[in-house]
């Protein structure tokens, strides 16, 4: 199973990772605001993640770490 770690406080809520996920597992938070004032990304179903790292490759701020 893949494990994702987000440096949530550095997320800028740009949504590029959300569009890149082939499994549609990522969303921008509806109820959280991070230190920078953005709605950070969240994973909806970690068990469904295939660890392809598409989200991390797309992230301009390099805040996602992917382990498999």
């Amino acid at each position: 199973m893949a494990k994702l770690t987000f440096e949530t406080d550095l997320c800028k809520g740009c949504g590029l990772c959300v569009n890149a996920c082939p499994k549609n597992l990522l969303v921008l938070s509806k109820d959280k605001i991070n230190l920078k004032g953005h709605s950070p990304v969240e994973i909806t179903d970690e068990a469904a993640c295939i660890g392809c790292a598409s989200c991390a490759i797309m992230c301009p701020d390099c805040i996602i770490t992917v382990e498999r």
């Binding site: 550095l10 800028k12 991390a56 701020d61 770490t65 992917v66 382990e67 498999r68």
Partner: peptide, 20 residues
Amino acid sequence: MKVFEKPKALTDAPFHYCPG
């Protein structure tokens, strides 16, 4: 095993660039 992480040749400084 890590399949993706921030490269060592970048510092820890957060980018000032606009979102996206």
